[in-house]
C-alpha cells in the first residue's frame, strides 16, 4: 500500500502548489494594472502627465522657446462644443503659462464631462507640469451654459533640446450617466467638484 499512497500524496501536494501558482498569476494579472500606472507615471510614457502642483520648477530658460499646441477632441457622442481658446502658445521652459479651453453645452440637459489629457511626443509628458488644470475635476455644465476652463502649466527646463513642439490633447468624455457624476447633477451650483483623481 505504501508506494501508492506516497504517490498520491505527492500528487496532492503538487496540485496544491500548482493551484496556488494559478491564483498568484491571476492576482498578478490584476497587479499589472497599478504597476502599469506607476510605470507610465514614472517614465511619463503613454502621454500620462505628472502633476507636481505648486512645487513646479522655477527659473526659466530664456534661450529657447517651445511651441505648445493645444488640441480638443470630443469623444464619440459627446455633443459639447469644445476648443482651445488659442490653439498654440509659445513659452520659455520654466515659464508659468495660463491657457484656457472653451466648453459649451448646447443640449437642453445638464451634463457632466471629464477631460482626459494626453501629451505627444510621449517623452515630453514628464516635463509638462500642470499647476492647475480643468482636467483635475469633473465639469458640470447647465443646459446652454458656456464656460472658460483654465489651465496653468510649466514646462520643465530639463526638457530635452530636440523637443521644440509639444502637443497637448484633451479628450472630453460624457460621464453624465456614471455614478461619480450623480452629486454634480444634484448640486445647484455649477462649481466643479474634485474627482480626487489628481494623477490624471
Amino acid at each position: 500500500m505504501k508506494p501508492v499512497k506516497s504517490a498520491q500524496q505527492k500528487n496532492r501536494s503538487m496540485v496544491r502548489t500548482l493551484i496556488l501558482s494559478c491564483v498568484l498569476m491571476f492576482g498578478f494579472g490584476f497587479a499589472l494594472v497599478p504597476l502599469y500606472d506607476v510605470f507610465c507615471r514614472i517614465t511619463g510614457l503613454n502621454g500620462k502627465v505628472l502633476n507636481t502642483g505648486p512645487n513646479a520648477p522655477t527659473g526659466s530658460d530664456k534661450n529657447r522657446t517651445i511651441r505648445v499646441q493645444m488640441i480638443a477632441v470630443n469623444n464619440e457622442s459627446m455633443p459639447w462644443e469644445f476648443r482651445a481658446l488659442s490653439p498654440m502658445v509659445t513659452v520659455y521652459p520654466g515659464e508659468s503659462k495660463q491657457a484656457a479651453y472653451l466648453a459649451h453645452n448646447p443640449t437642453s440637459e445638464k451634463m457632466v464631462a471629464q477631460a482626459i489629457p494626453s501629451v505627444s511626443p510621449s517623452e515630453a509628458a514628464q516635463y509638462l507640469h500642470k499647476v492647475n488644470c480643468f482636467c483635475f475635476d469633473r465639469q458640470p455644465l447647465d443646459s446652454l451654459e458656456t464656460r472658460e476652463m483654465p489651465l496653468l502649466f510649466v514646462i520643465d527646463p530639463e526638457l530635452p533640446t530636440y523637443i521644440s513642439t509639444i502637443t497637448l490633447s484633451y479628450t472630453l468624455f460624457d460621464i453624465t450617466s456614471t455614478k461619480a457624476a450623480e452629486s454634480d447633477l444634484l448640486s445647484k451650483s455649477a462649481q466643479p467638484n474634485s474627482t480626487g483623481r489628481n494623477t490624471l
Binding site: G29, L32, Y36, Q114, T178, K179, A180
Partner: peptide, 20 residues
C-alpha cells in the same frame, strides 16, 4: 460593474488591455 480598467473616461487605459 462600472469599473474603468480600460475606459479612458474613468481614468483607465485601453493600451493596458493590450499589455495584459
Amino acid at each position: 460593474f462600472g469599473t474603468s480598467f480600460f475606459n479612458a473616461a474613468g481614468g483607465g487605459d485601453p493600451v493596458l488591455f493590450q499589455h495584459i
